[in-house]
C-alpha cells in the first residue's frame, strides 16, 4: 500500500484503493453474503418475515440431499462436468500440440482465426446452431442415414447433445492454456527423447504432458467450472433425462419462487467448484498463481 501511494501519490492512490475495495466488498463479497443469508433462512410469506419463524436453519441444504431427484441431478452434474472436461482435453490436446510444435506459422494463424471467429457470436446462438444440427430431422441425422451409418434418425437431444454442445463451447478455454504451455517446451527435449528411443506415446507421457501440467490444470479448471455452471447447453440440447443442476437453481428462483432454496443450491454448487479447483491444484501440484497466469 505504501508503494501504491509512492507510485501514484496519495490522491490517485486513494482512488485506486477505494475502487478496488468497492469492487471486492460491494460486488463480490456482499452478494455472496446476502446469498448465504438467504440460504440459511426458511422460505416465508412476506408477513412472516422478521417474525418468530424467521430464524437461521439448515433446512434448505438438507432438502437438497434428502430429495432423491435433486441429489441425483447434483451428482450427475458433477460427473458429467468431469466428463465434459475430460472429453474437451482429449479433443484439444492433439490440436494444441500440433499448433504449438508441428504446424507452420501460417497454418497456426489460419487455424487460430478459424477457431476464434465462432466465438465472436453469443454462446446462446452458437448452441442454437448445434440445436439445428442435432435436431431429429436435422442435417446430422440426414447425413448419417444417407451414408448408412445409422438405420433410423437418432434423438441426439440427451446427454450426448449436451456433451457435444459443451465440448464445443469450451474448447478454447482448454486449447489456449494447453497450447501456451506446450509452446514453451524446448523442441530439443522432444527430439532428445525420440533420440533416446522413446515412442510417441512415451514422449507425451513423460515429457510433454508433465511440462504442460500447469496449462492442463488451468484448462481443466476452466472447463469444469464452465460446464458445472452452464445453463444454455443443457436447456437447449438436453432432454428431461439430462437436466443440469443449474436448471434446478433457475427453477427455484424464477418458477418456484423459493429464493432461499435456490440460494442454498447455488452455494452448494459454488462450494463444489471451489473444492474441485483446490483438488485439481493439489493433484497437478501447481499453485493458484500459476493457473492465474
Amino acid at each position: 500500500m505504501h508503494s501504491l501511494f509512492q507510485r501514484f501519490g496519495v490522491g490517485l492512490g486513494s482512488v485506486i484503493l477505494i475502487c478496488v475495495a468497492t469492487w471486492l466488498l460491494g460486488m463480490v463479497l456482499a452478494p455472496n453474503l446476502m446469498m448465504l443469508d438467504f440460504s440459511l433462512r426458511p422460505n416465508l410469506m412476506p408477513a412472516q418475515i422478521g417474525g418468530p419463524d424467521d430464524r437461521y436453519t439448515l433446512v434448505n441444504f438438507t432438502a437438497l440431499f434428502s430429495d432423491p431427484v435433486h441429489r441425483g441431478i447434483f451428482l450427475k452434474t458433477i460427473w458429467a462436468s468431469a466428463l465434459v472436461m475430460a472429453t474437451t482435453f482429449v479433443v484439444t490436446y492433439p490440436m494444441a500440440y500440433w499448433l504449438a510444435k508441428v504446424a507452420r506459422r501460417k497454418a497456426v494463424a489460419f487455424v487460430t482465426v478459424a477457431l476464434i471467429i465462432p466465438f465472436w457470436i453469443n454462446e446462446v446462438l452458437r448452441t442454437l446452431a448445434w440445436y439445428i444440427l442435432l435436431a431429429f430431422n436435422g442435417p446430422l441425422n440426414v447425413v448419417l442415414t444417407s451414408l448408412g451409418v445409422i438405420d433410423a434418425p437418432v434423438r441426439w437431444f440427451s446427454d450426448i447433445g449436451v456433451l457435444a454442445g459443451m465440448v464445443y463451447a469450451y474448447i478454447l478455454f482448454m486449447l489456449f492454456p494447453v497450447y501456451n504451455s506446450i509452446s514453451t517446451l524446448d523442441s530439443a527435449q522432444v527430439e532428445a527423447a525420440r533420440n533416446l528411443g522413446a515412442s510417441t506415446l512415451q514422449i507425451h507421457r513423460r515429457i510433454v504432458i508433465p511440462h504442460a501440467k500447469a496449462g492442463i490444470a488451468t484448462g481443466c479448471v476452466f472447463t469444469f467450472m464452465l460446464a458445472a455452471g452452464s445453463y444454455v447447453a443443457p436447456a437447449l440440447l438436453g432432454a428431461p433425462g439430462s437436466r443440469w443442476f443449474t436448471e434446478i437453481i433457475y427453477n427455484w428462483f424464477f418458477e418456484g419462487g423459493n429464493w432461499n432454496r435456490g440460494a442454498a443450491y447455488a452455494l452448494v454448487l459454488l462450494a463444489l467448484c471451489m473444492a474441485f479447483v483446490m483438488a485439481a491444484l493439489r493433484i497437478f501440484r501447481v499453485n493458484l498463481a500459476d493457473v492465474a497466469k
Binding site: D186, E191, R194
Partner: peptide
C-alpha cells in the same frame, strides 16, 4: 531416430 544406434548431445543439452 528412435531406432538408430546413435545418441545425440544437443547444443541446448535438452536435459529433462
Amino acid at each position: 531416430a528412435d531406432q538408430r544406434p546413435t545418441s545425440m548431445i544437443f547444443q541446448s543439452l535438452a536435459l529433462f
